[in-house]
Design a protein around this nucleic acid. Sequence first.
DNA 1: GATTACAGTGAACGACTGTACACTGAATAG
DNA 2: CTATTCAGTGTACAGTCGTTCACTGTAATC
Lengths: 217, 217
Amino acid sequence: MSNAVDIRRLEAVSEEPVSRQERKQRTRQALLDTALDLLADRPFATLSLREVAKGAGIVPTAFYRHFASMEELGVALVEEATRTLRGMMRSARTDPDTYQGMISASVATVHQFVRAHEDHFRFLTRERYGGGPLARSIAVELRMFSGDLAIDLARFAPLRAWSTEDLHMLADLIVSAMITTTVELLEARPGEDTKITGTAEKRLRLILLGIPHWKSA
Amino acid sequence: MSNAVDIRRLEAVSEEPVSRQERKQRTRQALLDTALDLLADRPFATLSLREVAKGAGIVPTAFYRHFASMEELGVALVEEATRTLRGMMRSARTDPDTYQGMISASVATVHQFVRAHEDHFRFLTRERYGGGPLARSIAVELRMFSGDLAIDLARFAPLRAWSTEDLHMLADLIVSAMITTTVELLEARPGEDTKITGTAEKRLRLILLGIPHWKSA
DNA sequence: GATTACAGTGAACGACTGTACACTGAATAG
DNA sequence: CTATTCAGTGTACAGTCGTTCACTGTAATC
């Protein structure tokens, strides 16, 4: 659980001199980590400044040395999580080999990233639809994600003739299918992963099957 | 805004004698309506018992005459909202005419129901991924919804040979596309509706285009 | 070596939270 | 007509909340 803090506190043991900047940055990260921990089973709006501060091992008033408000902490969290998201996008960009190869590679990438950064993805999927100010900035980020995907898709031979509008429609459809998969993975009990990724691949295959027969009207 | 209460309070004007049961049921409904109002821009977990009670025109302690806790109020809200959802499902069940007719009719039904019950759909989409105990019961309800859709789909000629597993995969895909559309409608600025429903129809068309060429794996 | 900058401290505040308890008054039951 | 039921009242209490303010001790600067 929230033991990240205690580990961090051990830095006194290692003999390397820690600059003030480094110390500050570590506390800041401890705040972010604590918040992410607490977010495992609650929406962001229910976090209190005091409990985040306590979890990070500082007194409530010291919180303000790092963020002007909880909302600002939330924005930083969105940035951290979307960095992971962009990393995933970068990993998934692969040479258009076969349809099937591309599908299973993409699903595998999503699977791997979700499992390696569960808290980031949980945060993003939770707060995306949660209302509040974070939802808006996450929506912007997801739109960029979808836009990038549309650009990638445009390079595929069967899609070269598609209008940008249709490409965005397709990209949105793929993204929302992937979000569904992400949520399923986050809610899965152990051992259900292969079933979920299998269904995810089927969904993508079905979508891509329609592409050759598409007429925009 | 939250004037539902005041309207309700006018019942004293109408001369019909109101039984005690009726009065109680009205207050209960006022609590639900107030909560739904407050949920317009905040997650459920941030609602306080006191403000819901105040909005319904009763003192905080009287809240307990109707619900044992806010969570129980939330469960009642899920029931109310899913009643709307089932109503939509019933309306959308139409004779399998043409593909295109079925698609535009379904999208039109979703559009109409979302606009007529924005607060219910906002509540469902927000809390579905919001964590907490409500998310689970909403997930159960959505799975039933998806299951019903799978059964309906099985009646279509091109889908008669499909395995139940594949039918569920297809139903889930359609449901998540529809949820995306719902969220888009709820976030839309006035005038964007036709663009959104247009895209929604395209998404469904693309999905259905793949069906004739499907081979299970 | 003296001075400054600043991350973290600790007490105090007013506002708000859920809930316990004893109550009132009117619709209902006998 | 009397007794009971029960939705709603009002007070009170112990917690938690965000934020204020004056402070301390040490790393960084001159």
